[in-house]
Structure formats: structure tokens, C-alpha cells
């Protein structure tokens, strides 16, 4: 990973975590859907970032959210799992020509369909493990699944809204 990614990513981590902790953690639609946008921090890291750094970043981001929500290590555990499975998934989804150096796993670089599958799977892994650990039993399995899907849809929609709002600026910069 080249050094120029470190500063913007650190700033992005801080901003997204602040938004998650102080705004989104207090949002809950009908008791079923809780938007969790911070997994996109890990999802959108450049493809070339070494696996161990991704896992470590996931753990730290999750733990930061945990510190503020009295959840022990639930966010950390699920985001670490997601960070660990990111590399195998990227390998599975690799196009025949392979990834280019410094390529980003975004819909702009990889195409809409690719991104939906990639982000969808990772987001599902994170949300499902999070809600499973949160209820801490298989007793409410159906409810956990419903919560996973509803929250996943809300998280994904929020992400799209945020990135669409940021898009016009990028065009000007070109």
C-alpha cells in the first residue's frame, strides 16, 4: 500500500465512526432496522492493502464503536470476521485479467454488478454475525435473520445516498 492512502483513510475512519456513534447508533426504524455504515470503511479499503492490516483496522474500528455502546466486543468481533473474509472473497471475485495495482473495490472501478455482489456479501457477513452475537443465542434465529436483512437494506441505502451526494464533486475534479 502506498503512503498516500493513509491520511485520507484515517480522516475517513474518524468521520464515519463519529457519524456512526453519535448519529446512526441512535436511529432505529420500528425496532427492526439499525443502520450500521462503518463496515464500508473496511469494504472500501484499496484492494492491495495486506490482509493483516485490514483485519487490524476492522478490529480497531469495531472496538471504537463498542467502547461507546456498552456492547463489549460485538462490533469488533463481527468486523474482524468481515475483514478476515474480505481477501478470500476478493480472490473469488477476481476478474480474469487480475486486479491492477492501486485499484479500489468501488462500483466506479469494478462495475455496478461486481460491487453489489462484493459489498452485499461482506455486509451480510457483518450484519448477520453482529445481530447473532447481539441476541447471543440461536433462540431468536428468525428475528435475527429479519433484522439482518432489514438493517442491511437500510445500511446499503444510506451508503448509496452518501456516495451519490459526494459524486458531483468528483466529476468536477476530473
Amino acid at each position: 500500500m502506498t503512503g498516500r492512502y493513509i491520511v485520507p483513510n484515517t480522516i475517513r475512519f474518524i468521520l464515519v465512526l463519529l457519524a456512526q456513534i453519535f448519529v446512526l447508533n441512535h436511529v432505529n426504524l420500528f425496532g427492526w432496522a439499525a443502520p450500521l455504515v462503518y463496515p464500508f470503511l473496511i469494504i472500501l479499503l484499496p484492494i492491495g492493502v495486506p490482509s493483516s492490516i485490514v483485519i487490524m483496522a476492522g478490529f480497531l474500528a469495531g472496538l471504537t464503536v463498542d467502547f461507546f455502546t456498552n456492547t463489549g466486543g460485538i462490533h469488533a468481533a463481527s468486523l474482524t470476521l468481515m475483514g478476515f473474509l474480505r481477501k478470500p472473497l476478493l480472490m473469488q471475485l477476481m476478474p480474469q485479467s487480475g486486479y491492477e495495482k492501486d485499484e479500489l473495490p468501488t462500483f466506479k472501478d469494478q462495475g455496478f454488478g461486481w460491487f453489489m455482489i462484493y459489498a452485499g456479501i461482506l455486509l451480510f457477513i457483518h450484519h448477520f454475525s453482529y445481530f447473532l452475537l447481539e441476541s447471543f443465542s440461536f433462540h431468536h434465529f428468525g428475528k435475527t435473520l429479519v433484522r439482518t436483512f432489514l438493517s442491511g437494506i437500510v445500511s446499503f441505502s444510506l451508503f448509496w445516498i452518501i456516495s451519490l451526494a459526494a459524486l458531483p464533486q468528483r466529476k468536477k475534479m476530473r
Binding site: 495486506p50 493483516s52 456492547t71 470476521l81 452475537l133
Partner: peptide, 25 residues
């Protein structure tokens, strides 16, 4: 080696996270 390293790190961090969860519960 780099692969094993990631797996090791993953396991260690998950153990830390789960011990924190059990403390809260």
C-alpha cells in the same frame, strides 16, 4: 506465511473480542 499470519491475527483478535463480550454479559 502472510496467509497464516492473517489467520493467526484473526484468531487472536476474535479471542480478545469474545472475552470482552463475555465480560459485558
Amino acid at each position: 506465511l502472510s496467509k497464516v499470519h492473517a489467520l493467526l491475527l484473526f484468531i487472536i483478535l476474535e479471542i480478545i473480542a469474545f472475552s470482552l463480550i463475555s465480560k459485558v454479559n
